[in-house]
């Protein structure tokens, strides 16, 4: 029982990071119908700026470098959202979805290249001041307790807080309501005076901040390097599982993929000679495409006159 739970928990905690990346996709897709290929690049860019700014300030500021770097990185992500809205989205308003998708591919290559030009292309570290030693949970319940990576636990807690904040923002605030209105019907939202440009700026900013959190947690765990951008590829099966328009879907999809691939690796991996963690998610997604293409939580389209 103990080892199984450990694997499950480890998987769920990794899954939280997938969820965060998928969440960024969902936000932008819902509000603007754009499939943002650049989400992974945004995660990398955010992680790079966080790592380098912290590294640069740490000698003089010590631990204070962390909040300062975090704030500056958040501002950088906002500026990025602003630039993308002004220079790309606004110019392409009313174009076909595929053209916008191509534009996000352009943004991806730009961000990958530009990010490495200004921040460098080595492996960098983000210091969250957490101990590398695993912690043991539930020692009274199980003999020996459960072994948990503190970084993953931290990531889960932060992700939980982030999701709660977003939920309140969407459900309770005026701008959140406007975002949901735009997601439902662009034209009607415009007709009541909600400016689309402003809404896009907000969603890209929120997606940028979510990318920052994901990049920071991921980077702290594995080091900040180009492969972080590839994490975004893991978000694809998550989206297929959870549905492209569902925020809870992104979260639960991430958890399922995270837990599923770890369990599969440990318990059936040996049958395939190991390494199934890398492709398990895609096979699961493929199965979903065949049997439930709208995903677990794909929003039902309400049709009624």
């Amino acid at each position: 029982m103990g080892p199984f739970l450990e694997v499950l928990l480890g998987g769920l905690l990794t899954g939280v990071l997938y969820s965060l990346v998928a969440l960024g996709f969902v936000l932008i897709f819902k509000a603007s119908g754009v499939f943002n290929f650049a989400q992974g690049a945004m995660v990398l860019f955010a992680a790079l700026s966080m790592a380098r700014l912290q590294e640069w300030m740490a000698p003089t500021l010590g631990w204070v470098a962390f909040p300062v770097a975090l704030t500056l990185s958040a501002l950088i992500m906002m500026a990025l959202a602003f630039a993308i809205e002004r220079l790309v989205l606004r110019q392409l308003i009313n174009q076909e979805g595929i053209i916008l998708f191509m534009a996000t591919i352009g943004i991806t290559f730009f961000l990958d290249g530009f990010g490495q030009t200004i921040w460098g292309s080595d492996i960098y570290e983000i210091d969250l001041f957490l101990s590398k030693d695993p912690i043991f949970l539930f020692e009274d319940v199980f003999p020996g307790g459960l072994l948990v990576d503190p970084y993953e636990l931290m990531a889960a807690v932060i992700a939980g807080i982030l999701v709660a904040v977003l939920a309140v923002f969407f459900q309770k605030t005026r701008v959140g309501r406007a975002l949901r209105a735009v997601a439902d019907d662009h034209q009607a939202a415009q007709s009541v005076g909600i400016p689309l440009n402003y809404i896009w700026l907000i969603v890209w900013t929120v997606a940028g901040l979510v990318a920052l959190v994901a990049g920071m947690m991921w980077g702290a765990k594995l080091g900040v390097q180009f492969s972080i951008a590839l994490v975004a590829l893991k978000a694809l099966p998550v989206l297929i599982l959870g549905g492209f328009t569902s925020v809870p879907g992104a979260i639960i999809g991430g958890l399922i993929i995270g837990a599923g691939e770890k369990l599969a690796e440990v318990y059936v991996g040996s049958m395939f000679g190991g390494g199934i963690e890398n492709w398990f998610a895609y096979v699961l997604a493929l199965a979903f495409l065949l049997f439930r293409p709208q995903g677990l939580f794909g929003e039902r389209i309400i049709e009624r006159v």
């Binding site: 309501r177 209105a181 019907d185």
Partner: peptide
């Protein structure tokens, strides 16, 4: 064709009209 925001409640729909 009305174009209400289908996933919003009636009251939330009304409130979107006060966005400005």
């Amino acid at each position: 064709g009305r174009h209400c925001f289908g996933h919003l409640t009636v009251e939330e729909n009304l409130l979107t009209g006060a966005f400005i």
